[in-house]
Amino acid sequence: MILEAVMLQVKQGMEEEYEEAFREASKIISAMRGYLSHELQRCMEVKGKYLLLVKWETLEDHTVGFRQSKEYQEWKKQLHHFYDPFPTVEHFEKVFL
């Protein structure tokens, strides 16, 4: 299992619109091969800051299967215009329980 972690900064004043768009876009990612689960967390200290955590079966399920798919193009269309700056995506693997 791979954990994708993304710190997101949403443009000021667009937080509600983003959360609604994310709810809709969640249908896209949750239908992808290798997808296990995801959650979006809102920062309590910094307005507009979010943490996205996605669990994938393998790294390639995200980096190839999702990122190189036509579904990813729709994901980008629905969500990427909200971000400033554009986020960095990192992947983690469990060391131990």
Results as ranks from 00 to 15, higher is better:
residue 1 M to G: 15
residue 2 I to A: 00
residue 4 E to R: 15
residue 4 E to L: 14
residue 5 A to I: 05
residue 5 A to G: 09
residue 5 A to T: 12
residue 5 A to N: 11
residue 6 V to Q: 05
residue 7 M to Y: 13
residue 7 M to A: 05
residue 7 M to V: 12
residue 11 K to L: 06
residue 11 K to G: 13
residue 11 K to P: 07
residue 12 Q to E: 14
residue 13 G to Q: 12
residue 14 M to A: 06
residue 14 M to Y: 02
residue 15 E to P: 02
residue 15 E to H: 10
residue 15 E to T: 06
residue 15 E to N: 09
residue 16 E to G: 03
residue 16 E to H: 07
residue 17 E to A: 06
residue 17 E to P: 01
residue 17 E to H: 02
residue 18 Y to A: 03
residue 19 E to Q: 11
residue 21 A to Q: 08
residue 21 A to Y: 05
residue 21 A to T: 04
residue 22 F to I: 11
residue 23 R to H: 10
residue 23 R to P: 00
residue 23 R to W: 04
residue 25 A to L: 05
residue 26 S to F: 09
residue 28 I to C: 05
residue 28 I to W: 12
residue 29 I to M: 09
residue 29 I to C: 04
residue 31 A to T: 06
residue 32 M to D: 02
residue 32 M to A: 05
residue 33 R to A: 07
residue 33 R to E: 14
residue 34 G to P: 03
residue 34 G to S: 02
residue 34 G to R: 08
residue 35 Y to P: 03
residue 36 L to H: 15
residue 37 S to E: 01
residue 38 H to S: 05
residue 38 H to K: 03
residue 39 E to T: 06
residue 39 E to N: 06
residue 40 L to Q: 01
residue 40 L to T: 03
residue 40 L to H: 02
residue 41 Q to N: 06
residue 41 Q to E: 01
residue 42 R to A: 09
residue 43 C to H: 12
residue 44 M to H: 11
residue 44 M to F: 07
residue 44 M to W: 08
residue 44 M to D: 08
residue 45 E to M: 09
residue 45 E to T: 11
residue 45 E to L: 11
residue 45 E to H: 08
residue 46 V to K: 10
residue 46 V to A: 00
residue 47 K to D: 07
residue 48 G to V: 10
residue 49 K to L: 05
residue 49 K to S: 11
residue 49 K to F: 02
residue 51 L to Q: 11
residue 52 L to V: 10
residue 52 L to H: 08
residue 52 L to P: 00
residue 52 L to E: 12
residue 53 L to F: 12
residue 54 V to Q: 04
residue 54 V to R: 04
residue 54 V to I: 15
residue 55 K to G: 01
residue 55 K to Q: 13
residue 56 W to T: 04
residue 56 W to R: 07
residue 56 W to Y: 07
residue 57 E to G: 04
residue 58 T to K: 15
residue 58 T to M: 10
residue 59 L to M: 15
residue 60 E to P: 00
residue 60 E to T: 05
residue 60 E to V: 00
residue 60 E to I: 00
residue 61 D to L: 09
residue 61 D to A: 07
residue 62 H to E: 13
residue 64 V to T: 06
residue 65 G to E: 10
residue 65 G to P: 11
residue 65 G to D: 10
residue 66 F to L: 14
residue 67 R to I: 05
residue 68 Q to C: 06
residue 70 K to N: 09
residue 70 K to P: 05
residue 70 K to R: 10
residue 70 K to V: 02
residue 71 E to I: 03
residue 73 Q to H: 08
residue 74 E to Q: 06
residue 74 E to P: 02
residue 75 W to S: 07
residue 75 W to A: 05
residue 75 W to E: 03
residue 76 K to C: 02
residue 77 K to V: 02
residue 77 K to E: 15
residue 78 Q to S: 12
residue 80 H to R: 12
residue 81 H to S: 13
residue 81 H to R: 06
residue 82 F to C: 08
residue 82 F to T: 04
residue 82 F to Q: 07
residue 82 F to A: 09
residue 83 Y to L: 00
residue 83 Y to V: 01
residue 83 Y to N: 09
residue 84 D to N: 11
residue 84 D to R: 08
residue 85 P to A: 08
residue 85 P to T: 09
residue 86 F to A: 13
residue 87 P to G: 01
residue 88 T to K: 15
residue 88 T to D: 14
residue 89 V to T: 12
residue 89 V to W: 01
residue 91 H to G: 03
residue 91 H to V: 01
residue 92 F to Y: 15
residue 92 F to L: 04
residue 93 E to V: 11
residue 94 K to W: 05
residue 95 V to M: 14
residue 95 V to N: 06
residue 97 L to C: 07
